[in-house]
Amino acid sequence: MGIADDAKNTAEDLKGRAKEAVGAATGDEDLKAEGQLDQGIAAVKQKLTDAADKLKEGVDAVKDKLTGNS
C-alpha cells in the first residue's frame, strides 16, 4: 500500500465530487448518484489501505521483536 494507493483513492474521490457537482448543477440525478457512489467506493478503498498499512506496521513490529531488531 502507500502513497500511490492514497493518490488513486484521492483522485477517485475528486472524480466523484466533480460528477456529483455537475449532476446537481444540471439536474442529472443519475450523474449525481454516480458521483456519490464513486466517493463512497474511494472512502472504502482508503479505509482498506489504512488498515493494511496498520497491519503491516504491526507485523513488522512483531518481527523486529522476535529477531531482536529494535
Rank of each mutant, 00 (worst) to 15 (best):
31 L>G: 03
67 T>Y: 08
58 G>S: 13
9 N>H: 09
48 L>W: 12
18 A>Q: 04
56 K>Y: 03
41 I>K: 15
59 V>S: 02
7 A>P: 06
65 K>Y: 03
47 K>E: 08
43 A>L: 14
63 K>V: 07
56 K>R: 15
55 L>S: 10
45 K>F: 10
26 T>C: 00
8 K>W: 11
34 E>H: 02
6 D>E: 15
61 A>T: 02
42 A>L: 01
5 D>P: 05
20 E>C: 04
51 A>I: 04
1 M>F: 07
64 D>N: 12
58 G>L: 04
68 G>I: 00
30 D>M: 06
20 E>R: 09
44 V>S: 15
24 A>Y: 04
9 N>W: 04
15 K>S: 08
41 I>E: 11
37 L>W: 13
54 K>D: 12
5 D>F: 06
20 E>I: 07
33 A>W: 00
8 K>S: 14
48 L>I: 13
63 K>D: 06
5 D>M: 10
28 D>L: 01
49 T>C: 07
30 D>Y: 06
64 D>H: 01
33 A>K: 11
65 K>N: 07
60 D>V: 02
70 S>W: 08
50 D>W: 05
25 A>Y: 02
12 E>T: 15
50 D>Q: 14
18 A>R: 10
62 V>F: 01
19 K>R: 11
13 D>N: 15
69 N>A: 08
22 V>Q: 09
14 L>I: 12
23 G>F: 01
67 T>Q: 12
28 D>S: 03
70 S>T: 10
5 D>Q: 13
14 L>N: 12
9 N>L: 05
57 E>H: 04
54 K>W: 03
16 G>I: 00
26 T>F: 01
17 R>N: 14
39 Q>D: 02
14 L>H: 07
49 T>D: 09
21 A>W: 01
59 V>W: 00
57 E>Q: 11
28 D>F: 00
51 A>M: 08
5 D>N: 09
54 K>L: 10
57 E>N: 08
32 K>H: 01
44 V>A: 15
25 A>F: 02
68 G>S: 01
61 A>P: 06
40 G>R: 06
24 A>C: 06
45 K>D: 15
40 G>S: 01
40 G>C: 03
23 G>P: 06
53 D>A: 12
12 E>C: 12
45 K>Y: 09
48 L>Q: 11
40 G>T: 02
27 G>D: 03
70 S>L: 13
45 K>G: 13
25 A>T: 06
42 A>G: 01
47 K>Q: 08
61 A>I: 00
18 A>H: 05
27 G>A: 02
8 K>F: 13
13 D>I: 05
65 K>G: 03
7 A>T: 14
13 D>F: 15
32 K>T: 00
26 T>I: 00
6 D>V: 15
45 K>E: 15
54 K>H: 11
13 D>K: 15
17 R>A: 12
1 M>K: 07
35 G>M: 02
62 V>S: 13
